[in-house]
Deep mutational scan, measured.
Amino acid sequence: MASQGTKRSYEQMETDGERQNATEIRASVGKMIDGIGRFYIQMCTELKLSDYEGRLIQNSLTIERMVLSAFDERRNKYLEEHPSAGKDPKKTGGPIYKRVDRKWMRELVLYDKEEIRRIWRQANNGDDATAGLTHMMIWHSNLNDTTYQRTRALVRTGMDPRMCSLMQGSTLPRRSGAAGAAVKGVGTMVMELIRMIKRGINDRNFWRGENGRKTRSAYERMCNILKGKFQTAAQRAMMDQVRESRNPGNAEIEDLIFLARSALILRGSVAHKSCLPACVYGPAVASGYDFEKEGYSLVGIDPFKLLQNSQVYSLIRPNENPAHKSQLVWMACNSAAFEDLRVLSFIRGTKVSPRGKLSTRGVQIASNENMDAMESSTLELRSRYWAIRTRSGGNTNQQRASAGQISVQPAFSVQRNLPFDKPTIMAAFTGNTEGRTSDMRAEIIRMMEGAKPEEMSFQGRGVFELSDERAANPIVPSFDMSNEGSYFFGDNAEEYDN
């Protein structure tokens, strides 16, 4: 993207840094990872977990959730003011799984939030270390993106479920800051804005008074975040219109849905970061690795190297396929839920299948599930090659597409044709070009129609051997075009429920 120079890199967003050079960025990201790792080690000690239990991804998720809940100030305040039966607002906890007599047992633990905050700050040299908290939120978000298709949420806001490739980060909490905003897809931002506008339509006082002023500035800020994701002048001009509207209503909703559809071809720039579970960072720190000293990046080879040398386990339900569970977590670790499966298959070195073909449910185990038949197995999170994460949407291309997802959002900077089903997408653009945004709409449609099938995206960008740390010898991959490109292809993934 041309304006790259004016933006802070995501590592800076990730670490609240002012302008830093590459070495400083690597050190501050490393410091953040160190903090998460030290916190995780301490929690495993508190909970008396064995090494194996500490490497269980379900335990990692519970521990991450506990610290996120302990620092969720708004919710904590709300819980104190609106006490609900049987919930102690000062405590947080969740299921911890232990191996007892050759069987997995679930144990519900409860801790004072104050105590968890103390352990977290102690692991982070006394700081609140917001960057580390956001990092864990993005890992949870990436896992949700890989596990669930947001059909219901899309339909509720009037969008087409086939636009799911635009929904990265749709389950990120509001408090995820600049680093969170960077990884949100165009569809996620559109959905947040539509929800806001709908509230304004239904509630006369939404934009009024002292609160209304705050609401208005939040609305304009979200519009600017979305505008910054678009790469064409016409899309940005249309966002200006939406932002400046005196009284946002149905016309703005129409414009936003139009823009979301246009992003299936004229893709937005959305950041991709490899955020790993805390149970990967903990053992690495415990083994003596100093992330701050060595430096770390979320968008280069580092996460690949770390996963190459990590042992992570997962509980497996009786009829689940461990290899499929591994694929789910591998995609989440690489922030690749909406990437082209052919690119992923090449990088991973084994075939990556669409969601609907995987015999696996989510990673988390519900409290009512029976533990008797639970097994555990090693997650295979290694890769054959590594590639640089991208934040450009890439230019655009036609490809055989599917009944489910009709476009992709690249996660890796790797040369390819970008699949999208042009006739299906263009069919949504018939007729409606009147109104105050008509010239911009016409211009956007013209650009979409001009998108050429034979153009290559990320020209000359390749993948790298894991021994090639400096990215000196790019390998331009070859793809098996007979395979499906979309992950949520004609899909039956479970729906995400809060």
Rank of each mutant, 00 (worst) to 15 (best):
M1R: 11
S3F: 14
S3A: 15
S3Q: 10
T6R: 00
K7L: 00
R8T: 01
S9G: 00
E11N: 05
E11T: 03
Q20E: 01
Q20D: 00
A22C: 00
E24L: 08
I25P: 12
A27L: 09
A27S: 10
V29F: 09
V29Q: 02
K31T: 06
M32F: 04
M32E: 05
M32K: 08
I36F: 14
G37E: 14
R38L: 13
R38F: 06
Y40G: 01
C44Y: 05
E46A: 06
K48R: 09
L49T: 13
S50N: 07
Y52W: 07
Y52D: 03
E53L: 06
S60C: 13
L61V: 15
T62H: 06
T62L: 04
E64R: 11
L68P: 09
L68Y: 05
S69P: 08
A70Q: 03
D72M: 10
E73C: 13
R74K: 15
N76S: 08
K77L: 12
Y78L: 01
Y78S: 01
L79V: 12
L79K: 03
E80R: 02
E80L: 05
E81Y: 13
H82L: 03
K87L: 01
D88N: 15
K90L: 09
K90T: 15
K91V: 00
G93W: 11
G94Y: 05
Y97D: 07
V100A: 14
R102V: 01
K103V: 15
W104A: 07
L108I: 09
V109Y: 01
L110W: 06
Y111T: 15
Y111S: 12
Y111W: 05
D112Y: 12
K113I: 05
E114L: 12
I116T: 10
I116M: 08
R117K: 09
R121T: 06
Q122V: 15
Q122K: 04
A123G: 15
D127G: 11
A131I: 04
G132N: 09
L133V: 09
T134R: 02
H135C: 07
M137V: 10
H140D: 11
H140Y: 11
S141Y: 08
D145H: 12
T147S: 10
T151N: 07
R152F: 07
R152I: 05
R152H: 09
A153P: 06
A153S: 12
A153D: 06
V155G: 09
T157R: 01
G158S: 14
M163P: 00
S165D: 14
L166C: 01
Q168M: 11
G169C: 10
G169D: 05
S170V: 05
P173A: 14
A178M: 12
A178L: 14
G180N: 03
G180D: 10
A181E: 08
V183C: 07
G185K: 05
V186L: 12
V190C: 14
V190P: 01
M191P: 01
L193M: 15
R195H: 09
R195E: 10
I197R: 01
K198G: 03
D203E: 11
D203W: 06
D203I: 03
N205T: 13
F206Y: 13
W207V: 07
N211S: 10
G212R: 06
G212A: 13
R213P: 03
R213K: 10
A218N: 02
R221N: 11
R221Q: 04
N224E: 13
I225A: 01
L226V: 12
G228Q: 04
K229H: 13
K229R: 04
A233I: 04
A233G: 03
A234C: 13
Q235N: 01
R236Q: 08
D240K: 02
D240T: 13
Q241T: 05
V242P: 04
E244K: 11
R246F: 07
N247S: 15
G249A: 11
N250M: 13
I253H: 09
D255L: 04
D255N: 13
D255S: 07
L256E: 05
L256W: 02
L256A: 12
I257N: 09
I257T: 11
I257P: 00
R261K: 14
R267L: 04
R267D: 03
S269T: 14
S274T: 15
C275R: 08
Y281K: 08
G282R: 07
G282I: 10
G282L: 07
P283Q: 14
P283S: 13
P283L: 13
V285W: 05
V285D: 07
S287W: 12
S287C: 11
K293T: 11
G295V: 11
S297A: 04
I301F: 11
K305H: 09
L307W: 01
L307I: 08
Q308M: 14
N309T: 15
N309Y: 02
I316K: 02
R317M: 07
P318F: 12
P318I: 11
N321L: 07
P322R: 05
P322M: 11
H324S: 12
K325E: 11
V329A: 08
W330N: 05
M331K: 06
A332Y: 08
C333M: 15
S335R: 03
S335P: 06
A336N: 11
A337F: 04
F338M: 12
E339Q: 07
R342E: 05
R342W: 07
L344F: 10
F346V: 14
I347D: 01
I347S: 06
T350Y: 00
K351H: 12
K351Y: 09
V352D: 05
R355E: 10
G356H: 07
K357V: 05
S359M: 00
G362M: 07
G362Q: 08
Q364F: 14
S367K: 14
N368A: 13
A373Q: 03
S377I: 11
T378A: 15
R382W: 07
S383Y: 02
Y385F: 15
R389Y: 03
T390N: 12
R391N: 04
S392H: 06
S392T: 05
S392I: 10
N395G: 10
Q398E: 00
S402L: 02
Q405L: 02
I406W: 06
I406A: 10
S407A: 14
S407D: 03
V408N: 10
V408G: 00
Q409F: 00
A411S: 15
A411M: 02
S413C: 08
S413A: 09
V414F: 03
N417F: 05
N417M: 06
P419Y: 06
D421V: 15
K422N: 11
F429A: 01
T430G: 15
T433M: 13
T433K: 04
T433P: 10
G435E: 10
G435Q: 05
R436C: 01
T437R: 00
T437S: 15
D439M: 04
E443N: 15
E443W: 02
E443C: 03
I445R: 07
R446A: 12
M447Y: 09
E449C: 09
A451L: 14
E454F: 10
E455V: 11
S457H: 04
S457Q: 15
F458M: 07
Q459A: 09
Q459M: 07
G460D: 00
G462S: 03
G462W: 03
V463G: 10
E465V: 07
E469H: 07
R470H: 00
A471N: 02
A472N: 06
N473T: 11
P474T: 13
F479N: 04
M481C: 09
M481H: 08
S482G: 00
G485Y: 14
Y487C: 08
F488Y: 09
F488R: 00
F489C: 06
F489D: 07
A493Q: 13
E494N: 13
Y496D: 03
D497Y: 15
